[in-house]
């Protein structure tokens, strides 16, 4: 019914506070653990390794008590694109040996091509599951503070990690505002007779409609960024290269266990 709803369409990972054991680990360990898993899933060439990664992510989701309904949505949404990419992958796969499964005219579908397309889909599903698991178990404030402390050593190299972390923080705060602003502009235009949110619109019309939305979205966001910058200045931001943080994390033995489990799993994904 609501044609102006942009807020619910932005699929930024949703934190799910279930209070599971996964939620209670030190965020620094969680962030680095998930980072290694994601890297391993991206780099691994082994089907068994990726299947293992997939199983590992599913076990994580069960332990974290995240409803599968939520996860399945994040898999189904990109699925059409994945299938198209997989088909292209099969079509253009360089034919280097392996038994031929199917021959249509001059085109030969080899076993390896099917395998590589399958690997691609599995890899993406495993990645989506792992990223969903991370965003569901690491809250935005944990993410910010965790990153802040993990990146701290880089300060010694003269890199302003504070600014980087601040950018993430503001992006998290700004994205919903951006959606709300887009909604308001579209409504303001619709109220003056623009063809927003009416029925029977062609795809072409819909795309054409986006263009006059984008420029005001930019100017309004810039204006808003300006007032946000003012509010930050007013609260003494930007004088020290390093800020302190209200939260302190204490590294415990169980965090070490969790970290090692993630590391071993990452190693297995690559090596199996």
């Amino acid at each position: 019914m609501n044609q102006f709803d942009y807020s619910s369409k932005i699929a930024i990972g949703q934190y799910q506070q279930t209070g599971s054991i996964l939620h209670r680990f030190d965020p620094r360990v969680k962030i680095s653990g998930f980072f290694f898993l994601i890297m391993a899933l991206t780099l691994s060439r082994s089907l068994i390794g990726i299947l293992f990664g997939l199983a590992f992510a599913i076990i994580g989701i069960i332990i974290a008590q995240i409803p599968f309904r939520m996860i399945s949505r994040s898999i189904l949404l990109p699925m059409p694109f994945l299938l198209i990419i997989a088909i292209i992958q099969m079509l253009i796969y360089p034919d280097r040996g392996g038994s031929v499964l199917l021959t249509i005219g001059s085109f030969q579908l080899s076993e390896l091509a099917v395998l590589s397309a399958g690997l691609l889909i599995l890899r993406f599903i495993a990645l989506i599951l792992t990223i969903s698991l991370m965003s569901a178990t690491v809250s935005s404030s944990e993410m910010i503070h965790g990153l802040q402390q993990l990146l701290k050593p880089l300060n010694k190299l003269g890199i302003h990690t504070m600014d980087f972390v601040m950018i993430i923080q503001i992006a998290l705060r700004f994205l919903p505002l951006l959606a709300i602003t887009a909604e308001r502009i579209a409504k303001a235009q619709a109220s003056k007779g623009a063809d927003w949110g009416t029925k029977n619109r062609s795809i072409f019309k819909k795309i054409k409609q986006i263009i006059p939305l984008i420029i005001p979205l930019f100017t309004i966001s810039l204006r808003r960024a300006e007032s946000l910058a003012l509010a930050m200045d007013a609260r003494a931001y930007g004088y020290q290269a390093e800020r302190t943080s209200m939260t302190e994390y204490h590294f415990r033995t169980k965090d070490a266990y969790f970290g090692s489990v993630c590391l071993i799993a990452a190693a297995l994904i690559i090596l199996l």
Binding site: S141, L228, M232, A236, Y237, S245
Partner: peptide, 20 residues
């Protein structure tokens, strides 16, 4: 327009954090 952080208490902590 004047809330910086994504969680209430984080926002309240923003100023004191800047003052180290």
């Amino acid at each position: 327009d004047q809330i910086v952080a994504a969680i209430v208490e984080e926002d309240v902590a923003f100023g004191p954090e800047n003052l180290c």
